[in-house]
C-alpha cells in the first residue's frame, strides 16, 4: 500500500520534472545531428522559470475560458502521467482510468486548447485550432487501435495490466505489435507537433499548428502550456515504453529496491527514445499540411492492420 503510494508520487514527480529535461535532450540531440552548437539541456527549465516570473498580457477580448484552458490542459497531462506506468505498475490511480480514458484525456486537452485558440478570434488562432483538430481526429482513433491491439493480446484495456502481462509472460514475438509500434510512432510524431507534421521550432505562419494556437499566450499561461506540451511528449514516450518495451518496469508486488532500480532503466529508455526522435526529425522533411491526413491515415490503417494480424495469427 505504502509502496504503491510511493510509486504513484515518484512517477508524478518524475514526470513533472523529467518532462522538460526530455525536451531539452531531444533539442540537444537535434542540434548535434544538424551540426549546430547545442543548447543547454536545462534550457526548457530556464524558459519555464522566466515565463512564470513575467507579467501576463491577455488580449482585450480574452474570456475566462482562455484563462482557464492552460490549467485544464496542464491538469489533463498530469493526470495522464499518473495513470501511465513508467517506473512501476503498482499505480493506484491506474485502476480508475484505463487506456481508453487516457485517450479521452488527451482529447480533452486538445479540445480545450483548440477552444482557447479560437477565443481571441485572430486568424492564426482559428487556423491552428482547425489544424489541430484535423490532426486530432485522425490521430486519436489510430492511438486507440494501437492500444486495442495490445489489449487484445493482454485481454485488458488497462495499461498497467498490459505491461504487466508483457513482462511476466514468457518472451514471445508478437508480429501485430510491430504494426502497432510503427503506427504509434507516426501518431506520436503528429500529436507532439514533431517534424513531418509540424515543426516545434518555427513560427512560420503557413506551416505551424501547435505554435499558432499558443500565439496569444504569455507568461504563466504560456509556461503551463509549454510544460503541458513537454508532459505530453513524456507521456507518449511512457506509453510507448509501457506497450512495446516494458522490461524493467517494476511489478505490482515489487519493493522499494525494484522501484528505485526502475528509475535509471526508465532514464536509459527515455534517453534512447529522445535520440531516436531527434534522428527521425532530422532525417525527414516537413510534409505539406494536406499530406498530413495521408500520413495519419497510414498510421490508422497500420494500427488496424496490426489488429487484423493479431486476429489471424492469434498472437
Amino acid at each position: 500500500m505504502i509502496v504503491a503510494a510511493t510509486n504513484q508520487l515518484l512517477e508524478l514527480a518524475l514526470a513533472l520534472l523529467a518532462a522538460p529535461l526530455l525536451l531539452g535532450w531531444v533539442n540537444k540531440c537535434r542540434a548535434w545531428l544538424q551540426n549546430r552548437s547545442a543548447p543547454s539541456i536545462w534550457l526548457p527549465y530556464r524558459n519555464l522559470h522566466k515565463l512564470f516570473h513575467k507579467d501576463a498580457v491577455l488580449a482585450d477580448n480574452a474570456s475566462l475560458l482562455f484563462r482557464a484552458a492552460p490549467y485544464v490542459v496542464f491538469g489533463s497531462m498530469v493526470v495522464a502521467a499518473a495513470i501511465i506506468p513508467s517506473v512501476g505498475t503498482a499505480l493506484p490511480s491506474a485502476y480508475v482510468a484505463d487506456a481508453i480514458a487516457l485517450v479521452g484525456l488527451f482529447a480533452t486537452a486538445r479540445v480545450f486548447m483548440s477552444l482557447a485558440a479560437m477565443d481571441i478570434g485572430t486568424a492564426f488562432g482559428t487556423l491552428g485550432a482547425r489544424r489541430e483538430m484535423m490532426i486530432g481526429f485522425l490521430a486519436e482513433p489510430a492511438l486507440l487501435m494501437v492500444i486495442f491491439t495490445a489489449s487484445l493480446i493482454a485481454s485488458s484495456t488497462s495499461l498497467v495490466a498490459i505491461s504487466t502481462a508483457f513482462v511476466t509472460r514468457e518472451l514471445a514475438i508478437y508480429p501485430s505489435l510491430a504494426f502497432a509500434a510503427i503506427a504509434f510512432m507516426l501518431v506520436l510524431l503528429a500529436e507532439n507537433a514533431r517534424i513531418p507534421v509540424d515543426n516545434p521550432a518555427t513560427h512560420l505562419e503557413l506551416t505551424m499548428i501547435h505554435e499558432a494556437m499558443l500565439l496569444e499566450y504569455s507568461a504563466r499561461h504560456l509556461a503551463l502550456m509549454e510544460w503541458a506540451a513537454a508532459l505530453k511528449l513524456f507521456n507518449y514516450a511512457a506509453i510507448g515504453i509501457a506497450l512495446f518495451v516494458p522490461w524493467g518496469i517494476a511489478r505490482g508486488d515489487a519493493g522499494y529496491v525494484e522501484l528505485l532500480a526502475g528509475a535509471p532503466i526508465l532514464a536509459l529508455k527515455l534517453l534512447s527514445f529522445g535520440a531516436g526522435l531527434a534522428l527521425i526529425e532530422t532525417l525527414s522533411a516537413k510534409l505539406r499540411i494536406f499530406r498530413a491526413p495521408e500520413f495519419l491515415a497510414t498510421a490508422f490503417l497500420f494500427a488496424v492492420l496490426g489488429m487484423l494480424v493479431h486476429l489471424l495469427l492469434g498472437s
Binding site: F52, H53, D55, A56, V57, L58, A59, D60, N61, A62, I120, G121, T122, L215, E216, R220
Partner: peptide
C-alpha cells in the same frame, strides 16, 4: 508566482 495580468490588443 506573481499574478499580475495586463490587458492589451491581440497580436
Amino acid at each position: 508566482y506573481h499574478a499580475g495580468v495586463r490587458r492589451g490588443p491581440a497580436w
